[in-house]
Write a protein that binds this DNA or RNA. Sequence first.
DNA 1: GCTCATTTGTCCGTATGTATC
DNA 2: TGATACATACGGACAAATGAG
Lengths: 166, 166
Amino acid sequence: MYALAMNKRRPRGPVPVYQLVFNAVKADIDAGRLKPGQSLPTEAEMCEAHNASRQTVRRALADLREAGLIYTIRAEGSYVGPPDAPKIREPLAFERIADAIIEGIRKGTYKPDEVLPSESVMIEEFGAAKKTVRAAVNLLREQGWAYTVPAIGTFVASRDKWPEPR
Amino acid sequence: MYALAMNKRRPRGPVPVYQLVFNAVKADIDAGRLKPGQSLPTEAEMCEAHNASRQTVRRALADLREAGLIYTIRAEGSYVGPPDAPKIREPLAFERIADAIIEGIRKGTYKPDEVLPSESVMIEEFGAAKKTVRAAVNLLREQGWAYTVPAIGTFVASRDKWPEPR
DNA sequence: GCTCATTTGTCCGTATGTATC
DNA sequence: TGATACATACGGACAAATGAG
């Protein structure tokens, strides 16, 4: 007896699984739940979601590509196409942190001219590196959300300095 | 016709390679060749050792993690676990230097109230950067092994100041 | 403070073998 | 037999985090 698991095919109906996946993604696009430029879930996530193997998911993605509904960038992911559509890049780590802080400012958790949490607190809270936190704070400054008083701390900018929502 | 890249898969028996790697590591742990807290080889080294791809090695490591046998710190490595067990991190560069000096103090190479080698000598001796040597000396001060007289030098603390061996 | 190498994390691309319908 | 589906395995690329100089 082999230690290997026996492969089992799981017929879930007359429609092939890869077509089910294809239709599910197409439905999300048609319904606007996935907008052009937006990134699709990773292949691994789609495997989980549809309880299918990676091969099967990839078959569906290949069909979606052929249909011009998505495009794929190697080692990056698949996006709702066509490629000339506005690109909606996934935010990087420091951008996610900056967004979280902006959210806190908008919601009043951090009020104008009050001090923001210290660098070390942010490192703890976001589980990020010092460099990443600094990049986030730097972005906040550039955009006018905050200002820094050397050796004192970083403060929330007054409301009239906040960027206009686009 | 088929000149290009055939036979990428190398079956080495009925047992999947990732399980072979899993078992090899587990055997090392069970036999005490890998002790709790000790660091595992890097993924790249394990690829070499087992002649396997990184994906395969990572699959084995994931299973080992799930089994609670190891834990992994990003950009650092994997350690024999579990994490709540005695955490014996591999000493960092400055800690290794500090340990070496403590060893010298214990053995009498450096005697109480005598001066320790200068920064530049230590840089030479340990092949380390200034920053690293300073971190080591700082640790010695914090633990009570040494004290510094500004502009003069750093001296071995008197024996009653030494930390209790744990 | 900056740069570099190292290491883990996360992707995509491809290929083989096998099982089931 | 051929289409479908799964597990395994190798490879390449880039991102993120860390320690070191």
